[in-house]
C-alpha cells in the first residue's frame, strides 16, 4: 500500500485545474494505466487521425512545397471537378458493380458452405474439407494472382489447354475486359469462401440441439429443420456481416484488383482505389485523389448507418 500513499502525496502537491480537482487526482492515482495507454493513443492519433485531418488537402490546391498550412483553399473545386469528370462515372460504375457482384455471388457462398458442412455426418470428412478450404485465406493476393496467371495463360495455361482440346481458340483471359469482373469475383471466392464460412459454422454449432429434437418429434424432415431452425439461427450473423459488407461497398479490395488490372482491362476493372494510386501516388495529383478518398469514406459511413437502421427495423439485428 506504499504506492497508494505516495500517489496521494503527489496528488496533494499537484496544482491541477482548480475546477476539477478530482479529475487529476484520479488520473494520478491510476497513472500506471494511463501511462500504458500513451503509446497506443499516440499511435492512433498520428497514424489514423492525423491523415484524417490531413484530408483537408481535398479542399486545397495542395502544393507539396507549401504544405498543409501554406496551400491555397479552393473550397469544393475538386469535388465539382470530380463529379463532372468523364472518368468518374466509369470508376463509380466499376466500383459499384464489382461490389454488387461480390454481395450477390461471393457473399452467400460461405453461408451455403456452412449449411452443407453442418449436414455432413462424418466428422473426419468435415474436418478435412475445412482444412482444405481455409488454406487459401493465408495465401497472399500476389500468389493468387500468380496461380491465376498460370492457370489462364493463353499459351500454356490449363484452361486454354482444355479449350484447345475441345477445338476452341485460346483466349487471353487477363487481357479481356469482359472477363475481368468474373475473374475478380471467382478468385475472391476461391480465396475467402472457406474462411468466411467459419462464423456461420460457429453460429450453427451454437444452436440448441433440443430445438432439432423437438422438430423431429413433430415430424419435420431435414429440409424443414434447416428452414425453420438452422436458417433463423444464423440470420443475426448473416445480417451483421451483410451490413459490414455494405459499409465497404466503395472499397473493392485494392491489393487484389491492382494485380489483376492492366490498361487493357481499365474499362471494366478500374476502380476508385486503383485510380487513386495511379493518379495520386504515381502522378502526384494529391488533392483530387484525396477528394475521392474522402468521398468514399463518407459514402461508406452513411451506407453503414442506413444499413444498420434498415436491419434494425426489419430483423431487429444491429451493429450498435
Amino acid at each position: 500500500m506504499e504506492s497508494g500513499t505516495v500517489n496521494g502525496a503527489i496528488a496533494k502537491l499537484s496544482t491541477g485545474t482548480p475546477k476539477k480537482p478530482g479529475f487529476w487526482k484520479y488520473v494520478l492515482r491510476h497513472r500506471a494505466f494511463y501511462l500504458m495507454l500513451v503509446p497506443g493513443i499516440l499511435y492512433f492519433l498520428v497514424f489514423k487521425y492525423f491523415p484524417l485531418f490531413g484530408s483537408v488537402i481535398a479542399f486545397q490546391d495542395f502544393n507539396i512545397f507549401k504544405g498543409f498550412s501554406g496551400s491555397d483553399w479552393v473550397g469544393f473545386k475538386w469535388f465539382e471537378q470530380l463529379f463532372t469528370y468523364d472518368k468518374f462515372t466509369r470508376l463509380l460504375r466499376n466500383t459499384l458493380i464489382i461490389s454488387l457482384y461480390q454481395i450477390v455471388f461471393a457473399f452467400p457462398l460461405p453461408i451455403v458452405l456452412a449449411c452443407l458442412l453442418n449436414e455432413v455426418r462424418s466428422m473426419a470428412y468435415k474436418r478435412i474439407v475445412q482444412t482444405v478450404l481455409y488454406l487459401p485465406h493465408f495465401i497472399s493476393w500476389t500468389i493468387v494472382f500468380g496461380l491465376t496467371y498460370m492457370l489462364l495463360s493463353p499459351s500454356q495455361g490449363l484452361v486454354n489447354q482444355l479449350i484447345a482440346a475441345t477445338g476452341g481458340e485460346s483466349i487471353a483471359f487477363l487481357q479481356k475486359p469482359e472477363y475481368f469482373r468474373t475473374i475478380i469475383i471467382s478468385s475472391g471466392i476461391w480465396k475467402e469462401m472457406g474462411w468466411n464460412s467459419i462464423i456461420f459454422i460457429a453460429a450453427l454449432a451454437g444452436i440448441n440441439p433440443a430445438l432439432y429434437e423437438a422438430a423431429r418429434m413433430d415430424g419435420a424432415n431435414r429440409w424443414k429443420q434447416f428452414l425453420h431452425i438452422s436458417l433463423p439461427g444464423i440470420l443475426p450473423a448473416i445480417m451483421i456481416l451483410l451490413m459490414l459488407k455494405i459499409g465497404h461497398v466503395m472499397d473493392s479490395g485494392f491489393e487484389q484488383i491492382w494485380q489483376f488490372l492492366n490498361p487493357a482491362t481499365y474499362e471494366t476493372g478500374d476502380v476508385f482505389d486503383t485510380y487513386t494510386y495511379r493518379a495520386g501516388i504515381l502522378q502526384g495529383q494529391y488533392s483530387i485523389t484525396t477528394a475521392i478518398g474522402l468521398f468514399k469514406s463518407v459514402v461508406g459511413f452513411v451506407l453503414l448507418v442506413i444499413a444498420n437502421r434498415v436491419s434494425k427495423m426489419t430483423t431487429g439485428e444491429g451493429l450498435y
Binding site: 495507454l37 497506443g40 493513443i41 492512433f44 498520428v46 497514424f47 489514423k48 487521425y49 492525423f50 491523415p51 484524417l52 490531413g54 484530408s55 488537402i57 481535398a58 507539396i64 459499409g247 482505389d273 487513386t276 494510386y277 495520386g280 501516388i281 494529391y286 485523389t289 484525396t290 475521392i292 478518398g293 474522402l294 468514399k296 469514406s297 459511413f301 453503414l304
Partner: peptide, 22 residues
C-alpha cells in the same frame, strides 16, 4: 471514450494520399 476513439478509426478510414504524405 478511448475505445470509441479507437473504434472510430475502424469505421471511418483516412484516404491513402494523406497517409502517404505523412
Amino acid at each position: 471514450i478511448i475505445l470509441l476513439f479507437i473504434i472510430f478509426t475502424m469505421i471511418f478510414q483516412a484516404p491513402i494520399v494523406p497517409m502517404y504524405l505523412l
